[in-house]
Simulated assay, not measured.
Amino acid sequence: MNTHNERAERWPGRIALMVAHCAGMVDLVALPVWVGALIAGYGLDPQRAGALATLFLLGAVISSMVCAPRFPRLRTGMVAVAGFTVAALAFFGVSLTTDYAVMAVLHAVAGAAAGAALSMTHGTIGRCRSPHRMFAMAGMALGVFAIVFLGLMPGLIASLGGPVLFRVFAGVMLVAAVVAALAFPSALVEKTVRALAAAPIAPAVWFAGFGIGCMGLVQAMMFSFLERIGADRGFAPGAVTGVLIALGFVNLLPAPLAALLERRWPAHLVVLGGPVVQAALALTIATSSGYAAYAFAGALFAAVMIFTHTFAFGLVAQLDTGGRALSATPAMLMMGAAIGPVLGGTLVKSAGYGALGAAAVAIGCVAVFCFARAGRRPAAVLS
């Protein structure tokens, strides 16, 4: 039985999936600049700025939850094109207004549209011959995108103002829509795969999903304020931007490293270590007063998420040949990430940056528990 999408194995299809992954996962790269621009460029307090990013992520969660169960019946390419197009229009609309209510609605619309497109992307990646490797390739593309984005955006925002961020977001989504229209590997799912998709999802998948969500929560909570923490501790703007650029270069490493180690490191053990390292780095960023510790932890922070998520994606793929659960990975990841910016903003507003580190440690413990439960599966599944 062939359950794989052959078009996704060809380079045009691979490139389309990589571009779509970069656009759909833009929050993983952009959150510190995003929240920072809303605070510095629009005069919002941390809580209100974080709430806008949360609305984007919440929209992505809801649309992913709606689309994922229907993945085997959808024309994935059409959904991807429509989703990125609507997201582009919504972000362009954000750049034209300073009304908070309008910005909030447009953030939610952009998130819902991009989340639907990302669900199609991840579900399609899940039907490749090697989902782990294809997801790693998408992660490498995201690393390259991060270097360009984080290298250029702080200077552009400083010189042109906050709205330029949302025009760039609109451009990224528009490029993804065009590439998806030209080459997205949209193929109808075979009847045998539809039958597989109708089967109940294993409990291990749900635990893995909650673990990914917890890591996404820590990622978004800390990453949203990485730039602000550096600025408020008196580090020079160029020094803070240097950390963001270094972060982009470091992000090139975890995806190819995850691909190289796919058959050498057991996925169920890697996902146990990921939350521990993530929490340690978050605590360092939140509590350190020296630039060296801040820069080291900040440069590595997102890489831990990318590396661990690649292994988690491959772990879930072993239980989901139909792509349904993997189509829900935006919901898994962004359910936590949606809470992150507003939770982080609330903690910072009420108790300072140190509270972010304590929260990261507590959430990391929950993630370890979830991944430990996800690893309790028959040996045949782990092979």
Rank of each mutant, 00 (worst) to 15 (best):
F223C: 00
P69Y: 11
N251L: 12
N5D: 15
V81G: 13
A88E: 02
A246G: 11
M140D: 02
A112T: 05
S288T: 13
A158K: 09
W11Y: 13
R75V: 15
T308K: 11
Y100P: 02
I212C: 06
E190S: 15
V172S: 02
T124S: 14
S224N: 12
M134P: 04
A246V: 03
A108G: 14
I339N: 04
R10S: 15
A303P: 02
Q278V: 08
A198N: 08
D232I: 03
F311D: 03
G139E: 03
G323N: 09
P330G: 09
G273K: 07
L165S: 10
A116S: 13
R70M: 10
G111C: 11
R264A: 10
M103P: 05
A312G: 08
V86C: 07
P256Y: 14
M305K: 03
K191Y: 02
R377W: 09
V250N: 01
V361D: 10
P154T: 00
L315I: 07
A259K: 10
V81E: 09
A40Q: 14
A317R: 08
G50Y: 05
T98G: 06
G155S: 13
A359T: 15
V381K: 09
V342P: 00
F56A: 09
A325K: 05
A136T: 11
A202P: 08
Q47G: 03
M215I: 14
C214T: 11
A360H: 10
A176L: 06
A141Q: 01
V105R: 03
P378T: 13
A113I: 10
A40W: 02
G13Q: 10
M1Q: 09
A293Y: 01
G126F: 14
A80M: 01
V271S: 04
T284G: 07
G238F: 04
P341H: 07
I62R: 01
E190K: 10
G93V: 07
A183C: 12
A338R: 00
F307R: 05
L252W: 11
L356I: 08
A146P: 00
V218W: 10
A295Y: 06
A267D: 05
A374F: 01
V277G: 04
A198Y: 00
A53D: 07
L253F: 14
G161Y: 00
A303G: 12
Y353N: 06
H21F: 15
V86M: 05
G248H: 05
F145E: 00
A37L: 00
R233W: 05
L261E: 02
F371H: 14
H21I: 11
V29P: 01
I125V: 15
I39H: 02
C22L: 12
P131C: 08
C22G: 06
V205R: 03
F71S: 07
G248Q: 06
G248T: 05
L333N: 09
A372Q: 06
V79C: 08
T308W: 11
G364H: 13
P12S: 15
P266C: 11
